[in-house]
Design a protein around this nucleic acid. Structure first.
Lengths: 210, 210
DNA sequence: CTTGACACATACCAACCGGTATGTATGATG
DNA sequence: CATCATACATACCGGTTGGTATGTGTCAAG
């Protein structure tokens, strides 16, 4: 008698998820403000009744995209590999060289969803800014924590300021992605990452250290 | 009999200039797509008749802002100091430390106008992308040329790839500005610039070189 | 003084936007 | 079977947008 309905199989949750993903794609293409609710509905084949049943308004939908799409993506992609490593520099180098960052070349030209939203929404809406900045700060904290572990493991020089350096690494990476998105050149992107890679090398502890 | 009317004093050019600057401010605050034509008119005290007399449409106005406001600004601010220097690293360091980059703290939170527009418009409109990328590429070229001069003058290491490095420097700087705009922290911004400064130091030629 | 082009102002429009009000099919529950 | 909430679909609304059509003041030329 009890129908099977865990969190993932309930049909209403599936439609909700479909809308979140369609909204993410639309926002990724056009930004949040220019994202068309109608287009999201066209993409999903759903209607306004469906959307506004699950979300009170467009803004809430956008915030939900951050929490339920972008954050999990970033967590799996960028946070996870760094969470327990004691060689953060090696791990970061591997991350930079992993081609997974631009599997789909079309996706590269759209840039980093997090950065896109930060640039657009932070000056315009405080709610967005706080949520986006929390995600960004989490990222920086993950990198900083990894750098500190690297210092204890003597992979990282003792005199590097973990927090500032982590902030810079993430900023420079986002900068590289952003600039390459305009240039539309994978070569330029790789060249840029190479320089970032060189910078990471300068953080390495000298072999002579204890 | 001949009225004094050089390029700057003609009244119609003044109104045009007023609109360009108001448009720049509005775009800087809200991005191009979200920029309201009506708001620009309110700011200038002018009307639609005036605007559409000087510009055929909103898009042309936006492109004119890039050519006639942003480009001159960037040229004076970032290009000029690098144009003939033979110590690019010192010049760049000075540029980074010059507080002129954030005279008005409110302006900092709005980010770099060039980068803002690139992030927003490049994936959405090819005309914008080409024009913005040309300006960005000019910037990179100026830095690259300076680095090459620095190599001849033995301030810069011979093994640095001027073009890639210039691209990275500009990208990282834009990244720092962008991230700090979200964080809304001048301290974070300065910390980020400090790391960029450290990176620049690693480009210095060793004293022992010829 | 007249003319006519330029530089705007005023009034207005069609299109589209996010959001709402309401109708309906489904399915669980008592 | 009756009831009632959930999960949507359909139709529509007020507001705003970029853009246009037209009117008007100014000013230089003839």
């Amino acid at each position: 008698m009890m129908k099977r309905m865990n969190a993932t199989t309930k049909t209403s949750d599936l439609t909700r998820q479909k809308m979140l993903e369609a909204a993410f794609a639309e926002i990724h293409r056009n930004g949040f403000q220019a994202a068309s609710v109608s287009q999201i509905l066209l993409d999903t084949g759903l209607t306004k009744g469906a959307l506004y049943h699950h979300f009170p308004d467009k803004k809430t939908l956008g915030l939900a995209v951050i929490d339920e799409v972008i954050r999990p993506f970033m967590t799996a992609m960028m946070f996870a590999p760094l969470l327990e490593t004691e060689q953060p520099l090696s791990t970061l180098q591997a991350l930079l060289q992993s081609k997974s960052m631009f599997n789909d070349p079309a996706e590269v030209m759209l840039g980093c969803p997090l950065n896109n939203l930060m640039q657009e929404m932070s000056p315009v809406d405080e709610t967005f800014r706080v949520k986006l900045n929390a995600l960004f700060q989490d990222w920086v904290d993950v990198v900083a924590a990894a750098l500190k572990r690297g210092q204890q493991a003597s992979e990282v020089r003792q005199d590097v300021l973990a927090n500032d350096t982590a902030f810079f690494i993430v900023s420079a990476l986002e900068g590289c992605i952003g600039m390459s998105k305009n240039t539309q050149s994978v070569a330029a992107f790789n060249g840029c990452l190479m320089q970032l890679s060189h910078y990471l090398e300068t953080l390495k502890a000298t072999k002579t250290a204890a």
